[in-house]
């Protein structure tokens, strides 16, 4: 079954075309990494999925439902969202941060006592200790914040997870640990992940499929090994030139 379907989606800001006639099908359980230069439209593509951006033309289906006929607030509660600068709420404890979506949507099974256990379980799932629950975000390291951000995005058991350069602001070693963690989460939970990155090595390491975007158009949408073996356009060829030596998910 298709998790997300774009058909002929176009988005412009002023006279600049950000996305030009994008058509794309993403299967349930796929891990799609999206790569391209800054301003190529990859973040816009991601924000179309949870309705933060509305297309000028074309249609988008999420879990089989047209976004035009979907309540955006309800939709967003079923889609995990994690961004580069994390956006943890500084006035809430880690526990309250993780439980945010269940809390705003009065989700059953998240009463006071259950909430602590569920938040603790999510912390464990992202490789953190439960004693962080009562701390505030400012006392956490960059890597810990990213992990809490992922735990928060997973809290409402979403079927789709959107990640916008989630590991952009951490050091190389932490980044590698976070990458392994998200791979593990993907394998355990079988959720659809859309992951924006500007690092081709990261894109090829994590994705079951990689989408290469350039100037608002899809250059290639393929498995990482096919992208490496048979790049379809000069842009893709140039992009992978530098990454011949990196490992690939198979």
């Amino acid at each position: 079954m298709n998790s997300v379907v774009f058909s002929h989606v176009t988005k412009t800001y002023g006279d600049k075309t950000i996305l030009n006639d994008i058509s794309l099908e993403i299967n349930q359980g796929e891990f799609v990494t999206m790569i391209g230069r800054s301003g190529c439209g990859k973040t816009t593509l991601l924000k179309l999925v949870n309705g933060l951006v509305t297309p000028d033309s074309g249609s988008i289906l999420v879990n089989g439902k047209d976004l035009k006929e979907t309540d955006k607030v309800q939709l967003r509660r079923t889609i995990g969202y994690s961004i580069q600068n994390v956006g943890l709420f500084p006035h809430m404890t880690i526990e309250a941060n993780i439980a945010y979506v269940p809390s705003i949507s009065s989700m059953p099974g998240w009463d006071k006592t259950e909430r602590k256990e569920k938040a603790a379980a999510l912390l464990t799932a992202v490789g953190l200790e439960r004693d962080l629950l009562d701390r505030y975000p400012h006392s956490l390291s960059g890597g810990q914040k990213q992990r809490v951000g992922i735990a928060r995005a997973l809290a409402a058991s979403p079927s789709i997870l959107l990640m916008d350069e989630p590991f952009g602001a951490v050091d190389e070693i932490t980044r590698e640990q976070l990458q392994d963690q998200i791979l593990k989460i993907h394998e355990e939970r079988k959720i659809t992940i859309l992951f924006v990155t500007h690092d081709i090595a990261e894109a090829l390491k994590l994705g079951t499929k990689t989408l290469v975007l350039n100037d608002g158009r899809i250059e290639q949408y393929d498995t990482p090994d096919r992208i490496l073996d048979s790049p379809q356009t000069p842009f893709v060829r140039e992009l992978i030139e530098k990454s011949r030596n990196f490992s690939v998910r198979v």
Binding site: K47, N50, L52, V73, Q74, L75, R76, R77, T78, Y81, I83, Q84, N85, V86, G87, L88, F89, P90, H91, Y100, V101, I104, S105, R152, A153, L162
Partner: peptide, 24 residues
């Protein structure tokens, strides 16, 4: 960034105001 995260997670306008903006 905090506002975008809050909106992207499905906060209504009044939840944004009372749970995020006013406390901050």
């Amino acid at each position: 960034d905090i506002l975008e995260a809050a909106k992207g997670m499905g906060s209504t306008e009044s939840q944004m105001l009372f749970r995020i903006k006013l406390p901050l």
